[in-house]
């Protein structure tokens, strides 16, 4: 049943909506439209004047090999984090779903990393794996591996993936746990009577029934990796070494803030915006249709 509040006048409902509308307009639409407008402008080297250049910024962007490199980096980064964080979260959730002693403490502890700010998480992981200071880097180096995320791009990426995954597991864990608890116990019992062992039960019953949750989390995680890992990247690698961990969103910052190319940076923001809109659209379409059983 839908519950509807009825207003007699027209003023009150709009007045009630006003704060939210204002926030949306000031903090979302205004900057977004500014970015779109700015992406068509080019500034002189001193930032004193700007002129309208049409799609010049975009054209220039797609001629840069660094931009494609950042795209590849982003895809590698986001898919690694998505796969890892979803897999770990699902594993932890299936274990937490069993009734076990101290289950509550276990669940609470798993949620904590989500409360850690990205920059702090980044610093934390950087110190742990710092080639000369890190408590965890030492045993790795003792194994004979030349672990050095400051100089080796692959190592830097691994470190980023680990820290970004660590932060996202909490969120994914919560949703998977809720998804698991929503599966009727009797369905699992029926499968057990139907001669299906625990592993088979997981893959033929539980996993398919979790698919709406999984799909939702894939999209959320990708959006998270695209945007919210900025703090982690900035704290750990600063996009380096040699731009090897510069993702699309980091490049927006690097080109705009550090490089002073506001027009090019704005063009990149607009492209990112389009990607997110597309992801969200896919998400809504699928949640409404197929993936549901």
């Amino acid at each position: 049943m839908e519950k509807r509040a009825l207003f007699s006048g027209k003023v009150l409902p709009y007045a009630l909506l006003l704060p939210q509308l204002a926030i949306t307009l000031i903090f979302f639409y205004w900057p977004a439209s500014q970015a779109v407008w700015q992406s068509f402008l080019m500034e002189d080297a001193f930032g004193l004047s700007s002129e309208f250049v049409g799609f010049e910024n975009y054209r220039f962007l797609f001629k840069q090999p660094e931009y494609y490199k950042a795209m590849v980096t982003t895809v590698v980064f986001s898919s690694s984090v998505a796969v890892l964080s979803l897999a770990c979260a699902l594993l932890l959730a299936t274990q937490a779903d069993k009734s076990l002693r101290g289950g509550h403490a276990y669940k609470t502890l798993l949620i904590w990393p989500y409360a850690v700010a990205p920059a702090i998480a980044g610093v934390l992981w950087m110190f742990m794996f710092h080639p000369s200071l890190g408590t965890l880097a030492r045993p790795i180096r003792a194994l004979g591996l030349d672990w050095n995320p400051m100089l080796n791009g692959k190592h830097a990426m691994i470190l980023l993936v680990l820290s970004a995954t660590w932060k996202q597991i909490s969120y994914n864990f919560l949703f998977f746990l809720a998804g698991l608890q929503a599966i009727p116990k009797s369905v699992i019992e029926a499968a057990a009577i139907d001669g299906s062992g625990p592993v088979r039960r997981f893959w033929t019953i539980i996993f398919p029934l979790l698919s709406p949750t999984t799909f939702f989390l894939i999209v959320v995680t990708i959006v998270y990796v695209f945007f919210e890992t900025f703090g982690i990247i900035d704290a750990i690698t600063g996009g380096g070494p040699a731009g090897q961990t510069t993702t699309l969103v980091y490049k927006v910052y690097a080109d705009g803030r550090l490089g002073g190319d506001l027009g090019g940076s704005a063009a990149q923001s607009v492209i990112l915006m389009v990607i997110v809109i597309a992801l969200t659209a896919i998400q809504f379409r699928y949640v409404e249709r197929k993936v549901q059983y």
Binding site: S186, I193, P208, L209
Partner: peptide
Amino acid sequence: IEPSDRDIAMVFQNYALYPH
């Protein structure tokens, strides 16, 4: 003996059909 090896079948109150 595991439920699957007892050679029984059960009908549940909420049917417990596999929804997918």
